[in-house]
Computed example of a mutant assay.
Amino acid sequence: MTYTVNCSILLTELPLLERPAAAKAAGFDAVEFWWPFDSSTPADADVTAFERAITDAGVQLTGLNFNAGNMPGGDRGLVSWKGRCSEFKDNIAVVAGIGERLGCKHFNALYGNRQEEFRPEEQDELAVKNLVAAAEGVAGIGGTVLLEPVSGAPAYPLKTAADTFAVIAKTQAAGVANVKFLADFYHLAVNGDDVEAVIEEHAKDFGHIQIADNPGRGAPGTGELPLGEWITRSRELGYTGPIGLEYKAEAAQAFTWAIRQPAN
């Protein structure tokens, strides 16, 4: 399993529940999703329909986000969002249940934007508590919580690998070992991080890798990033997981760069 298709940003011409089958038809055996529901605790019927779309397509769900709020509206996670702590904790059980039923082990927890009415230290304290709760909540299924820097969101405080590893260190000090770094090469590059140095120092500890080219957040080869070289070096240094395809492209051209076997 080399690539996993992010069906929340790709194949968006199709209804969400049709995208896993479209990924399979394009020759891929794995998919990942941002939170695919409108609330942290969706109706059982909606969860069942989502799970059935995965299993009927014959693909493996490799990654799922915790609810991150209204992403089109600018939200970037609930982890540090004071006032929505109980909602985030309710979401943990739903995420873990989906993971257990579908064999998914990796769960991305977006940190959340800064709130002007609270001190950053207050939000950071809450974030560690919520990340620990999430890590404990998925530990029973062998799960890993992922944490990533994000670009294009000025109020999102985790901009670099160093920012993110500092938070991960706090979760380790609090007693959990299953919060890992999500190395999104696009976000790191756009934010001006030294991607090569991050890979050299941390690749063996990456929880997941996601890619898009820059400029444009398009498919590999549409920009200037040496994505192939970065992936190869990460694998040489110990990363063994799939590569998440998290870029923007029209369905007809989305995977023309990839060498793959057509689905049977």
Rank of each mutant, 00 (worst) to 15 (best):
D124L: 01
I54K: 05
I92V: 15
D194I: 04
N130P: 03
D205E: 14
I141W: 02
Q253N: 13
Y247L: 07
G175D: 10
G228R: 07
L158R: 05
I259W: 06
S40C: 13
A139R: 14
R76V: 04
P154F: 12
K170T: 10
G103W: 05
V190R: 12
E136S: 08
G241C: 10
A263E: 10
G238F: 11
T12K: 12
D56N: 13
A258G: 05
T222A: 10
G112S: 11
H106G: 01
A155D: 15
N67A: 13
E196Q: 15
W35N: 06
Q253W: 03
A161S: 13
R217D: 10
D205T: 11
Q261E: 14
V128T: 09
A174F: 07
L16S: 06
G83H: 11
P72F: 11
I243W: 02
K105Y: 05
Q123E: 15
R119P: 01
N91A: 14
A133F: 09
F255I: 05
H208D: 07
H106R: 14
W81F: 13
L237K: 10
F255G: 06
Y247A: 03
L102R: 09
A252V: 11
T144V: 14
A49P: 00
L131R: 11
I209R: 00
A161K: 02
L64G: 10
N191H: 10
G69H: 03
K82C: 12
A133N: 11
D124A: 13
T2R: 13
T144W: 02
A127S: 12
K170W: 07
W81I: 00
A197C: 03
L61N: 05
N91G: 15
E116D: 14
A23F: 02
Y3Q: 05
V132Q: 09
P226G: 03
